[in-house]
């Protein structure tokens, strides 16, 4: 067992915080973008047809591209566009773009799981559009949407390790730095493993709790 120096521990803590920031900010961006994309795909009428097509196309493309490719594309595009943004911002945008594609698919599936007769019943009761969503569609779609979304976000925490490729100091990169500095590689990465687990396990528990609660409500 090795003892980390204060400096090493501070480095790990900073990297842990960055992993949290990437996961939370990227996840929130993905949730917002994914929900918007799913709603666009559900929009009726000819007027929305181009938007429906674009949203569906985006989801199909993004889900087939490795995260690292998206990360590089965002990195180089922001550079080409002359945008003065930090590597962290680039990583968050890339995570958000990818997460939006996956979450859009989950949300879309959840919304489509609400039986058509429920929606028609709400329509014939003259419930306005927002009331239909609030009282009928969302409460029935949430139990279908939440567990896989949280599960996906847990998986995504691990993918934030790739942000090191554009120079972001996250947990994996901190492990590499400490290892290069001469600390025993196995122990360093066991510590990194423990921190990833500590981050993702509560989310897994939260997912199960929400699943039960939503099933009961």
């Amino acid at each position: 067992m090795i003892a980390f120096s204060h400096y090493d521990a501070a480095l790990l803590a900073r990297a842990l915080w960055m992993t949290v920031v990437l996961s939370v900010a990227g996840g929130l961006a993905g949730l917002a973008g994914g929900t918007a994309l799913a709603c666009l795909r559900m929009a009726r009428g000819r007027l929305f047809a181009p938007l429906r097509f674009l949203a569906a196309g985006y989801v199909q493309v993004v889900r087939r591209v490795p995260f690292i490719v998206t990360l590089y594309i965002v990195f180089f595009l922001t550079g080409m566009a002359g945008l003065d943004v930090s590597e962290v911002t680039v990583a968050i945008w890339a995570i958000g773009l990818i997460a939006a594609g996956y979450i859009a698919e989950i949300v879309h599936g959840g919304l489509r799981s609400v039986p058509a007769d429920q929606i028609e019943a709400a329509v014939t009761l003259n419930l306005p559009l927002l009331a239909r969503w609030r009282h009928v569609i969302v409460p029935q779609a949430l139990p279908v949407i939440v567990p896989p979304t949280v599960g996906y976000l847990v998986l995504f925490i691990k993918d934030t390790a790739l942000a090191s490729q554009v120079g972001v100091l996250e947990l994996n990169q901190a492990g590499v730095i400490l290892s290069n500095r001469g600390l025993p590689t196995m122990q360093v990465f066991l510590a990194v493993l423990g921190l990833y687990f500590a981050l993702s396990y509560p989310l897994t528990r939260l997912s199960r709790m929400l699943e039960k609660r939503l099933a009961l409500s």
């Binding site: 009761l125 003259n126 419930l127 009331a131 009282h135 029935q140 409500s217």
Partner: peptide
């Protein structure tokens, strides 16, 4: 719909809320 109401063959009841709330939803919200 302001004058008519329909009962569907498959009923279209909202299973995520109580029977009482099924009845009170439209009068309170609409």
């Amino acid at each position: 719909r302001a004058r008519a109401a329909i009962v569907f063959q498959q009923f279209g009841l909202f299973d995520h809320m109580s029977v009482l709330r099924n009845l009170t939803l439209a009068p309170t919200v609409v």
